[in-house]
Computed example of a mutant assay.
Amino acid sequence: MSVFIPSKLSVTYLAPATPFRPVEGRKYTLTHSDTTGQLFLSIGCNYNYSAINYSMRDEVLAEWIPQLGEYSLCARVYVSGGEYDENYTKVRFMIFQKELNLALQAMVNGDQALYSNFPWLLDAPIYVHFESIYPQFNQVVFYGTPRNFLV
Rank of each mutant, 00 (worst) to 15 (best):
A124Q: 10
R92C: 11
Q67F: 09
T29P: 01
N46Y: 05
N138P: 06
A51N: 11
A75M: 05
L73W: 01
P66N: 08
L61G: 03
Y127R: 14
P16E: 11
Y143D: 05
I133R: 06
E63P: 01
V3L: 13
Q139N: 08
Y127Q: 13
Q97G: 02
S10K: 14
Y143P: 00
H32L: 09
T31K: 01
S80T: 14
F142K: 07
A51V: 02
H32F: 12
Y28L: 11
Q67D: 11
K90G: 09
P16I: 08
S50V: 11
P125C: 07
Y143A: 13
M56S: 11
N53T: 07
Q105S: 14
Y13V: 00
Q38V: 07
S72G: 09
V91L: 13
I133E: 10
K98A: 10
L39R: 05
T31F: 01
K27Q: 13
Y115W: 14
M107K: 05
L14T: 09
M94V: 08
F4L: 05
P22R: 01
Q38L: 12
Y143G: 01
P6F: 12
M107V: 15
F130M: 12
H32W: 12
Q97S: 10
E59M: 08
F130V: 10
H129V: 07
N109C: 06
S55F: 06
Y84P: 00
T36V: 05
L39A: 07
Q105F: 09
P135M: 01
P125G: 04
V108Y: 04
C74E: 12
W64L: 07
M94N: 15
E63G: 08
N101C: 04
N138K: 08
E86D: 12
L41C: 06
